[in-house]
Amino acid sequence: MSIKRDYMISKVLNNNVILAVDKKTRQEHILVGKGIGFGKKDGKMVRLSNHDIEKSFIAYDKRTKKEYLQLLNQLDGKIIGMSEEIISLAEKELGHLNSHIHIVLTDHIAFAIERIHMQLEISNPFLYEIKALYPEEFQIGLKAAQLIKERLEVDIPEAEIGFIALHLHSARQNKKVKDTMKDTRLLKEVVDLVQKEIAMTIDNQDLMYTRLINHLRVAIIRTEEKKPIDNPLLESIKEQFEVSYRIAQKVGEYINEKKNIDVKEGEIGYLALHIERIRRSSN
């Protein structure tokens, strides 16, 4: 059934995104829909049906309203509209995202585009870790890159796609980007420690690398949440894989030092199994 509502257009962001006030509720919404902004003008009244609108949401709360309005005044509407399309796409695939994503991702994309125009190199030291840890978010980042190219004729590098994935993951987990970055950095440092101890480089494109870094992430989460796991193989691991167990202990000590959490023996034992598998693969 088609339900129509009247909206006053505050700002046409692009052909598919408008900022508009619902005449009945007086709430300002971001409206996303194919061709919804085509031929429309700011300050005009428009009647839209639920079939016209793919997604409708309030882009800010009282706390963030000032920040979002500043973005509207400072940035090209095309960038804001395109960012909202990316967020809409992400929520379809990932579920609800923290509302602050409308500010931080939009601002980040605008700054990235500015750096690209200035021909400043964008580097991402955690790119491979991001790909391994947040594959769903990275896939959306790839789609975002395609959208940016279509809308703005700007090619963003893979490093920047990684940063977009970080923002999406943070919003998905209700975390600050700096905290997600800190966690990702720690995982990279731990993998570097393992590589140093076993005196070999693990190919970051290899499945073994992905398995190791994902196991480390889950182990840290379990430890933070104080959910120790039983390891019936622990004594056998200690005896049979003495070298790998000793390396795993060093990893546990490093995590303890950085996050002030006590990694239990059961976790260390399972990590030793991963390390032993990597050591054997090198032979």
Rank of each mutant, 00 (worst) to 15 (best):
E121L: 12
K227F: 03
M8L: 08
S88F: 06
H108L: 00
K44Q: 01
Q27P: 01
L19Y: 04
G269S: 07
R47P: 12
E265L: 11
R280H: 11
P232F: 06
D76G: 07
I202D: 01
I261G: 08
L19I: 06
E67K: 02
T210P: 09
I275N: 00
I58L: 01
T184Q: 02
F163Y: 15
A159T: 14
M8H: 10
I79Y: 04
H108S: 00
E85N: 02
Y134V: 11
G37A: 00
K238L: 10
K182N: 09
M8W: 09
G81I: 08
L142Y: 00
I161E: 10
I30A: 12
V154Y: 11
Y7H: 09
S99D: 14
D179R: 13
D42E: 13
S123F: 06
E85A: 04
Y134S: 03
Y254L: 14
L19T: 10
Y7W: 11
I103R: 15
N283E: 06
M1E: 15
D183S: 13
D179G: 00
K175H: 13
A110P: 14
E197Y: 00
E91G: 00
T64M: 08
K182G: 12
V17T: 13
Q27E: 01
Q119T: 14
K182R: 15
E265Y: 01
L186Q: 11
